[in-house]
Design a protein around this nucleic acid. Structure first.
Lengths: 323, 323
DNA sequence: CTGAAAGCGCTTACAG
DNA sequence: CTGAAAGCGCTTACAG
């Protein structure tokens, strides 16, 4: 018991001398406490789950942006003395299983749809703190950390408008009346309003966020929308594909069509032309996600409103005034 | 005890009727076994560590190639009924701590230097199976899975030689007389030998594998080596930087200088010109790494020779005959 | 300040 | 085929 107190830093209950002696013996023998025994007895594991969607049989469905976040989350958890269980889940019911099986102290949900987060019930997650990254779900059982998607899209559109573009294609996944893409669409519209303009002439192209789909759209973009002079894509990986498709089709970027992305992936600065895009604060997202989750784990306060992180416009070479 | 037998599938010791009854009750109550209690009692955790180097205070030091592998490893482990503990370690002594603290059934080392793997002692890792990805270490306590680096580099050089290049820059991190980069250098030389040529006129540029370093090298490449007509870079991310640097400096790729990379990252097909490179079998690497590790975990056979995976040349647009 | 004892939820010889 | 009992390595009231 005294040894236990020393290890757990409850030095108020042990004499300095004893603490010293225990410490020395621990070092000498290379003693390492058993995490499973600890979890079992204390009913807390110092383990946090990082749960990501996984199509059955398939790989983890992690976007480049989310991949960048994983490393940062691990780093922050480690710094705070926690460990990371990385788990792909093919059905939301597996979330509850993971939580209870490992007595996870908390979980970060990365890449789930808003409706999946909203569908989480107390019966499934119990009292375990759960944080959803990039979610607009209002589920009171979860908290969130996300970027200011509205402002990001507003900045992107305002940039294109200020260059003189009017007919701008909005390219992104289909959206409902809530969520990341919807917010970006609202921000896109807002920029037009602020300039006294309307998005009535702006085509919306709906497609899943992959490089491949971007290429396909790029190839046929001017056939479908001959008057378009710019594209706002809701993800860099999509924007990169669109640029590739347009270049293939002989459409100059940014001479004929300007393109703005969203994310600021590393690779966005490697392609030609370098991509103008909206930068998200990846380190901040990861750090705040962990800190927020652990505040719940350790303090037990109830989830407040989602934390919203600033974004900024990064102007590079894929945008120019229309011809 | 009977319930335990049912859960663990030891149906030989339980009547079919009882199995059925237990199963039903488990479903009704939504019972989920406690992983920590199980680990503690059975002395096996069904947990595998994925250990990656982490500079202190810094992010995980994961290359794009290794990031792609992580998702695949998680998938394979999950399929085999194991869970993944992702952990950055800033000192190899932490490896032993992680193994013992969580009673890990095994560990995959990703991105460690050969000397770090070689330095692993029984005292640190005990009897836990450890597999090092991409390592040439001969440490008998570990097994390995890696690509055929020698052949990859040989194919790359042979491709350039067949196009007519003779003065080819070898660009990669510094290497000793063992390891991935050394193997690639040997394969590079081998291709020259097979053509009755020598690498005597081929400059070796030593630099760490980052996009930034590649750009810097690209900018000064022709100043430093005016006669060079091609570059073989030991990593795509480096090759991409080199191309960017050369284009900036007004050096045409592949018109003036051809470039071959190694890895076949997704982004290598997105840049302009699309990169000719050596493709590694990422899915195979991850799958075999897991299967091999679990063979040790479950069967307890002793580590055999490292498993070597085939590579192949992917010809795209960054290579052409010299002017 | 120190320690004996119960208990966390499982697994595993062992007896019946 | 079934189950009582010990034990895995900790934590935590509780007594001294």
């Amino acid at each position: 018991m005294t040894v236990s107190n020393v290890i757990n830093g409850k030095s108020a209950r042990v004499s300095a001398e004893t603490v010293e002696r225990v410490r020395r013996i621990i070092d000498e023998r290379g003693y390492v406490p058993s995490a499973s025994a600890r979890s079992l007895a204390a009913n807390q594991s110092r383990l946090v789950g990082l749960l990501v969607p996984a199509a059955t049989e398939d790989s983890l469905a992690i976007s480049p942006h989310n991949i960048a976040i994983i490393g940062q989350i691990e780093r922050r958890l480690r710094k705070r003395g926690y460990h990371l269980l990385l788990r792909g889940v093919s059905d939301t019911s597996e979330i509850g299983e993971a939580l209870r099986s490992w007595s996870l102290d908390g979980a970060v949900l990365l890449g789930f749809l808003d409706e999946e987060v909203t569908g989480l019930r107390r019966r499934v997650i119990g009292a375990t703190p759960v944080l959803a990254v990039d979610s607009y779900s209002a589920n009171p059982l979860t908290t969130g950390v996300r970027s200011d998607d509205f402002t990001g899209a507003r900045l992107a559109a305002a940039h294109l408008l200020s260059l003189g573009h009017r007919r701008i294609v909005f390219a992104g996944p289909s959206f409902t009346d809530v969520g990341v893409v919807h917010e970006r669409f609202l921000g896109f519209q807002k920029a037009f309003e602020e300039s006294g303009l309307s998005t009535a002439d702006c085509p919306v192209e709906t497609l899943n966020t992959t490089h491949e789909n971007g290429v396909a759209l790029g190839r046929r973009l001017l056939d479908a929308h001959p008057d378009a002079t710019a594209v706002f894509a809701t993800a860099d990986i999509l924007a990169i594909g669109i640029i590739e498709g347009m270049l293939e089709a002989g459409v100059g970027v940014p001479d004929r069509v300007s393109v703005v992305g969203f994310d600021d992936l590393d690779i966005s600065a490697y392609i030609t032309p370098k991509l103008t895009t909206i930068a998200q604060d990846i380190v901040g997202k990861a750090t705040h996600a962990v800190d927020r989750l652990l505040a719940l784990v350790e303090g037990g306060e109830r989830p407040a409103d989602p934390l919203v992180l600033d974004v900024r416009l990064v102007t590079r070479n894929s945008t120019a005034p229309p011809r």
